[in-house]
Nucleic acid binder design. Sequence first.
DNA 1: CGCCGCCTCCCCCGCCCGGCGGAGGCGGTT
DNA 2: AACCGCCTCCGCCGGGCGGGGGAGGCGGCG
Lengths: 221, 221
Amino acid sequence: MKTSDGAPIRVVLADDERMVRTALRAILESENEFEVAGEAATGAEAVAVVRELLPDVVLMDVRMPEVDGIRATEQILRTVAEPPRIVVVTTFENDAYVYEALRAGASGFLLKRADADELVQAVRLVARSDSLLFPAAVRSLAAEHAAARRAAPPWVARLSGREADVLRLMATGLTNAEIASRIGVGPATVKTHVASVLAKTGTRDRTQAVIAAYEAGFVGT
Amino acid sequence: MKTSDGAPIRVVLADDERMVRTALRAILESENEFEVAGEAATGAEAVAVVRELLPDVVLMDVRMPEVDGIRATEQILRTVAEPPRIVVVTTFENDAYVYEALRAGASGFLLKRADADELVQAVRLVARSDSLLFPAAVRSLAAEHAAARRAAPPWVARLSGREADVLRLMATGLTNAEIASRIGVGPATVKTHVASVLAKTGTRDRTQAVIAAYEAGFVGT
DNA sequence: CGCCGCCTCCCCCGCCCGGCGGAGGCGGTT
DNA sequence: AACCGCCTCCGCCGGGCGGGGGAGGCGGCG
């Protein structure tokens, strides 16, 4: 395959543990398509080194002194003209930082227990395209989301069409009169529907009903 | 690098368009490490073929007649003893199916406009590890989530400590009197705080304030 | 046909809520 | 010292809201 199309992939390693950096360097340099251009032991250092060396890829640890990997990622992507692809390295799959890293604009993820081959593949892929590499972690996060969205609370099915409409409008902050004019019925009718909604949701006022609607995912956050 | 450690990677292609299958086959077979073991034009066919051939990787289109790619993925993972890694192929980045595919247990994603090299890399990586390959799509999805959770709406910082307490309690469905006894102050005091919250959130009643709190991620859904 | 659920609308009552103005104490900034 | 923001409370008022009851029309189901 066409691994080396000329220049090597220039990598910067950012990790506060020297041993980790050494290990990563050893793995990458065993392939001649990589060149470890520099190292950094803190987030601030990482930003400086990247600004200086303009590498293709940065392997960024999340937990680092002074400035953590997430904020370093943000700063790099915000301030460097042609920013590198950044691969965030985490220890635990279910690390809450995964979200943060995504937001910050990371191009990939890697677990510290990944083997050498995975590391090589990841760096190579990230260098060539914008793809995101994900550990299994994301699967559970996505499942969580999906679960929250899908959990069908008992009362949802029992709402009549009109009641559902009214609840949705309640959840936008409208008063009964506003809902009435919106759906073209009298205010008294809306009151009736609201009363039904309160009964079926087991709530005592519109505020609680709206809360229930949100908690049930009945309205999208 | 150690690309071929003996047997080739056996791949099954599932796509209702013959041309797509042909193109994928051409790309994969240009590398001798892959072997396209079979093809399928529908979801049901895909399940049958996989059960028959037990490949290492399946490239699965989302939109297919009869049974879509998502449900085919579910069925394969649920019914095949040693299921293959499944890479879901989508046309659009912001495809809602991405979530579904994750839930179904897909090991990767690929955009149809991905180039040959990306495809090869993706299949190879997925075959060897459980990593998920993500197109940029996921970034926006995750950003959306994160944004909802994190987007610091201007008014949040402007709430005083007491006001924040009161808003949180409002968002649990308590009345002013209940909030008062909960935080050990007079009802009139709570009314004042509520009024401040309404003013700062730019809402007119407690229901709208609670909605704003949810939308802002001020309270966890 | 009778029963039931849904949608529509009406009445009255009472409370809680939101809007208004006023007040005092406390701590930090200028 | 003057000022401002926050927290604490008080009163009054009007209105939206929730509870209770009643009523009629419509459609489906046994």
